[in-house]
Amino acid sequence: MAAPIGQPRVRLPAQIKAGEVIEIRTLISHIMETGQRRNQEGQIIPRDIIKSFTCTFEGQPVFSMDLHPAISANPYIAFPFKAERAGNLEMVWTNDAGEQRKLTQAVRLAE
């Protein structure tokens, strides 16, 4: 059974001006089991990681990441985004078993 994927946390700046390059920061709870550790009986603990993260804005790709076992547990991922207009960011985390966590984050522009 795959390890639980927690609720993701996503943060954008409180105030966003049109055309501003903002930083999108994300954090998700996950053990990121490498597949190289052994349990107390000496058996290999099977690999179980978040293997991909994608972020789209109104359906258009913004940023994505392939994760390997060398990414620390509870993956922290941050990247810039140029906020040209209001709309929705959709972020998806996918584990080795293909299970996903999705989060939609509205981008609102300050007048």
Partner: peptide, 8 residues
């Protein structure tokens, strides 16, 4: 769409 090339 990122406006700047960076990742953390």
């Amino acid at each position: 769409a990122m406006g700047r090339a960076q990742a953390d």
